[in-house]
Design a protein around this nucleic acid. Structure first.
Lengths: 220, 220
DNA sequence: AAATAATATTAGATAAAGCTAAAAAATATA
DNA sequence: TATATTTTTTAGCTTTATCTAATATTATTT
């Protein structure tokens, strides 16, 4: 089963949208996700249906198949391994890796990915804390909750971010929130949902609900 | 100046053929080099002419421009740096790197190449002994001659191979000829041009003229 | 120099991936 | 329920990069 670069990108988008727990993935959602027009999406859905990576009935909706899931996870695996490479070995900042990894993920060479994985010491998470699927497409997820959903006095460790945009990541760098940081909720403002947290038992930090909702925590 | 992947491949082929010292590069040569049909080449030459990376007058011939040379050397630089990465870091054999590097060379990210170069410690030659152009497209070439052109009793060091096909490279691995090996011509057979050489003052090796002509030596 | 061969180009198709505008289907609203 | 709105799909066009078959040009031989 060979997919083109465009097909891989659509399938990845569909996989991500499917995982977000929504009832079903709409043509418009996909168009928004990959910055294209709904008309182009319709066309592609037909093609992906023919290739049996999704089940598709027009006007009805779609469902990703097992095959599709496996292929999407392969692409995600490659993307995340390359991100680790860029950060760990080439010293990219975590907000600089996405665009390059978007390109690198389409390189076709099973041997390359096998060797890269070994070279990076079989990492389990990428620089944004997202889990790296193994060669069989298995993903080990950790229980995690959004920072804004925690209560006062609860503590935990930052394990991932939901939004990986450069702007957000640079903001986190600036205020000193990083993956691995131990945090504790000091205060929550009812009015706007903003919170005050203690980072690494040293520094207090105020942040809006919007920011907090994009930070994922492993509770302890 | 932005080139598509296909355009980069054509330009690279044109650059390589131009460097081979031939009077001029023919449509058929290019078609053979990149495994396509002459009709497709004609089409592409027109496009490359419009982009001013070659000077092109139909039926007359073509000449690569300074701009074209610079862009071709950028691609070659990327290709060769990736080959070094694959061999030095991911432990690919030198006959396994070409196809993957063909893909990697089209990744667009100046920062990536800059960092990769630094990470690899600014290598000057790729695993086949070919020089790696610097960021400005300057290539430092070493004087080198084909092994079959040397005379009896002359010695030198293998510095590169002309043919980088997997079959040839695996043959060299098998007989123990590698880049860096010190060699001395022990005998030359007038009849067929085959030769006998001493490798690293230890081992003698017989090889056909065909093989010898694809091994490049720095004479000492 | 004329005929033949080789080489190069154009014409016309095809396939992928995108677009806009129009039509069709599904959903929401009055 | 009928109408309006939103969503989705189709129709038709564009671009890039191929191809084959036909034509044009240049080179080579008689």
């Amino acid at each position: 089963m060979e997919l083109t670069t465009a097909e891989e990108n659509y399938l990845k988008a569909i996989y991500h949208l499917s995982e977000e727990g929504k009832k079903s993935v709409s043509t418009n959602d996909i168009a928004a996700q990959i910055q294209t027009k709904p008309a182009s999406v319709s066309d592609m859905l037909r093609k992906l249906g023919e290739k049996e990576v999704i089940q598709y009935r027009k006007y009805y909706g779609l469902q990703i198949t097992e095959l599709g899931k496996r292929l999407a996870l392969q692409t995600i695996r490659k993307h995340r391994l390359w991100e680790v490479f860029l950060v760990d070995k080439l010293h990219f900042a975590w907000d600089e890796v996405h665009e390059v990894a978007e390109q690198l993920e389409h390189i076709q060479s099973p041997l390359l990915i096998e060797r890269l994985d070994a070279y990076l010491n079989y990492p389990k998470f990428d620089p944004h804390g997202d889990p790296i699927p193994d060669a069989y497409g298995d993903v080990r997820t950790r229980p995690r909750c959004a920072l804004n959903e925690m209560d006062i006095d609860q503590s935990g460790q930052i394990v991932a971010v939901k939004d990986s945009s450069a702007a957000f990541l640079r903001y986190l760098d600036k205020v000193g929130a990083y993956i691995g940081a131990r945090i504790k909720i000091l205060d929550k403002v009812e009015f706007d949902g903003s919170i005050e947290i203690l980072v690494d038992q040293k520094k207090t930090l105020f942040m809006s609900k919007d920011v907090a909702s994009n930070i994922l925590v492993l509770q302890s």
